[in-house]
Design a protein around this nucleic acid. Sequence first.
DNA 1: TATATAATTTAGGCTAGGCTAAATTATGAA
DNA 2: TTCATAATTTAGCCTAGCCTAAATTATATA
Lengths: 218, 218
Amino acid sequence: MISDNMQDYLKTIYKLSQSGEVTTSAVAEQLDVSAASTTNMIKKLAELKLARHTPYQAVELTPAGRKVALEVIRHHRLLETYLSEALGYSWDQVHAEAEELEHHISEAFEDKIASTLGDPKRDPHGDPIPTRAGVVDERRHHTLVEQPSAGHAGIVRRVSDADAERLRYLGELGLRPDATFTVLERAPFNGPIRLRLGKKEVNIGTELAQEIFVEPVK
Amino acid sequence: MISDNMQDYLKTIYKLSQSGEVTTSAVAEQLDVSAASTTNMIKKLAELKLARHTPYQAVELTPAGRKVALEVIRHHRLLETYLSEALGYSWDQVHAEAEELEHHISEAFEDKIASTLGDPKRDPHGDPIPTRAGVVDERRHHTLVEQPSAGHAGIVRRVSDADAERLRYLGELGLRPDATFTVLERAPFNGPIRLRLGKKEVNIGTELAQEIFVEPVK
DNA sequence: TATATAATTTAGGCTAGGCTAAATTATGAA
DNA sequence: TTCATAATTTAGCCTAGCCTAAATTATATA
């Protein structure tokens, strides 16, 4: 039996693994539990062959663990999309609701909302939705801090959904997936970045720019 | 903190209270737990002033406990209605899904689906949906076994949602809330009841007839 | 009224998942 | 290479809810 809690750990390990080695403390911090609890759970996951772990080392998911993680993530992102499209949630509200619901919907529900939405590929923040078979687009995008350089154009692909307030602000600015922009100026020493976005000009600090993932347009 | 489990107990006590005294064993049976577990939980509910109980006697909800129960029931019935109307679930599928989701939706979600549906008064089985303030239509209907007598007409008001298979069968027959019918014949000794339903004639055994709640038409 | 039976409660235990404090291991700087 | 610090694990404990078996109380019938 893979409990809801285990699913949360698996999801967290998967997400952290997208940007490097997964440490016990990173998992603990993400889930807001103690490192001791995390050690404990990792041990259980390893016994169930959902993760691999040698003490004092990084954790890794097995293919089975990854599968479970991607199912949960699929639920989460489909829910976010449904809440946004069908129920009129704003994009800063969907994460919290989906976080609670993701463990409690049936496969039937998953299928119904997926087909109601026409099998969407990305959620409202631009995160890719894994297929039912567990296939997901794992391409990484550069952040606005890294690319593109002044004078060049880009397109927003994804924004971090970690913080609702920031999302609201980005929404006001119009910095959403698929928005195209031109970099007007990059102040030196990691200074703010000035963009043209349609008719508007916006000025983004480095911290926020690191949560905006973009692709340069030739 | 009122846990999901407590909410389930409160809901069950409320429902059982609709048809008389609520015993420990009835609650236990309904929730499929031991009587000992039920005694335990009732003690906790009493400490939280959600129920009143003196050992070896019937349980009663306090107004606070009733309020919680009705909130859960509102969630459940709104969800059933939404699943049916918006997602195309058949009426025998909605109960199980709603049972799982009822504890996990936010007030915002509740409001969104309620207004999407136009504040429905009844769920797909004809059960009344409590208002947000905790007001619910507690009128009781007679069952088809009790009323109306041969030669008279009636209208279906509600059917029991306890069993999916029976619901499927009733659905096939067309015995849904708001269906009007005429009693053609009632066999003696609690025998089957023959009804005219639109152009069809149906023949219902006593057991099933007890799960169909009706109102006689003048 | 007495007593057998049924209902309920108490006692004692189990599991999942959390915690803190103490012990252990890894790491990076002198 | 050594040693201080940081990360991780172990040990031991807690709570919510569940269970069974035993004890208690209520009830119904002789």
